[in-house]
Design a protein around this nucleic acid. Structure first.
Lengths: 232, 232
DNA sequence: CATAGTCGTCACGCAAGTGTCACATTCCTG
DNA sequence: CAGGAATGTGACACTTGCGTGACGACTATG
């Protein structure tokens, strides 16, 4: 896999909770750094440049909200996504937290699955650079900004799922993916659908691309599919 | 089925529930072992080395959580994925269970479909496919990531079995293998096929490789075959 | 409430892949 | 140089995997 696991900074004053979260995230393939306070968190941010921050609402000294505000004010860290952790029953804090600049919030207790899912979602949303640029392959163009696909300058009508599928393929060319991997990457891990469903969407995508480009999506028999410009 | 099914250990004190789960999993192609208690589970783990554990929250004697903790503490079993089964409405258990090291949770009642799907997901994550580098031998290249074979940069069309055969040969060069060994390594152990079948696939592989590279697969008369760059 | 669009699932059929056989060919041995 | 054993080779029936159209559930939209 080309993407080295993203780094997540966990800020919480309770060590067991930090540990618990760290274990869950590491199992999902993330790197974890832990911090018990805002000060500690800040120095870690400078040192390790994490890709995002998991921030507990309650912190000794500087509170989580305040810390989030500070991060968002600083240009260096303004782009860094933040997920806030709040205890149950402090629902009202949601508004305050989001106002402070948090990208999402999770109320304890939460399942590891939920945590990882939302973390993934936030990270996906918060990686604008690179994905913004249109991708073009032999006359087939996908423009993420306009959310539009054109085949030889003619618009291609596809549903959201086919769009994500195509985007994934175009950003991961030449490599063969199993149906399970595609479900993970395109459908998003925590959703449960039949593997053969992938086939149907491949079919729809090929149909939409038309004769001009359907050959770019190749069947790897017994394995899965592949997006490639080279002939199979 | 050619693919060796993973083995799942089901730990639950209620026999009907175990049975139900086992049926669902076996239909999905998994091997099942059942245990009614932590003790029984432990001996099964030692004996059968299952690929993962389905663990009921409530167990007589040693509870499920406790058992999970024990498994995670032992180096031998720390890597083994655990899915916890919890009764409905005990959401708080999630946190406790995660602390114990469970990889996922399923709350009863659940559909077989969901069970299988999540099980698959957990197993997938727990089996990180190593970084596979392309192998190249005098113009013949096999790229496991792209699942593609090229002979002097020209694509080679081969079926799944020939692909596995070639991959095995290229990762085990210069050594002679008997037909029985090849059946074990490439076909996967417990399948019964005629030894002469290997000959046929060797033939198909040679044909696919073409004159440029068919000589790499050498016949060792009275023994089997060998993949070698040196002339025989 | 009606309509259109999308999604996941299923059932059917075709085509690729697989294992086995029969026969041809090669190789070794006496 | 015969004869048998081991391997090469083409053909065949059977199995498996994938393409494909259809359908019901769901959602958003007017």
């Amino acid at each position: 896999m080309t993407k080295a696991g993203k780094t997540v900074l966990i800020v919480d004053d309770e060590a067991p909770i930090r540990e618990m979260i760290a274990v869950a995230l590491e199992m999902a393939g993330y790197e974890c750094i832990e911090a018990a306070s805002a000060q500690e968190a800040h120095s870690h941010i400078v040192d390790h440049k994490p890709d995002m921050v998991l921030l507990d609402w309650m912190l000794p000294g500087t509170s989580g909200v305040e810390f989030a505000r500070r991060l968002k004010r600083d240009d260096l860290t303004a782009e860094m996504p933040i997920i806030m952790l709040t205890a149950k029953g402090e629902e009202d804090n949601k508004v305050q937290g989001l106002e402070a600049g948090a990208d999402d919030y999770i109320t304890k207790p939460f399942s590891p699955r939920e945590l990882v899912a939302r973390l993934k979602a936030v990270l996906r949303r918060a990686t604008p650079q690179g994905i913004e640029e249109p991708i073009e392959v032999s006359g087939l163009m996908l423009d993420p900004v306009c959310h539009r696909v054109t085949s030889n300058s003619k618009p291609v009508e596809i549903g959201p799922t086919e769009y994500r599928l195509l985007q994934f393929f175009m950003t991961h060319q030449e490599r063969a993916y199993s149906r399970a991997q595609l479900l993970d990457q395109v459908w998003g891990g925590n959703v449960y659908v039949e593997e053969r469903t992938v086939d149907v969407h491949i079919r729809r995508l090929r149909k939409a691309l038309g004769e001009a480009h359907e050959h770019l999506i190749q069947t790897v028999r017994g394995t899965g599919y592949r997006f490639s410009t080279k002939a199979s």
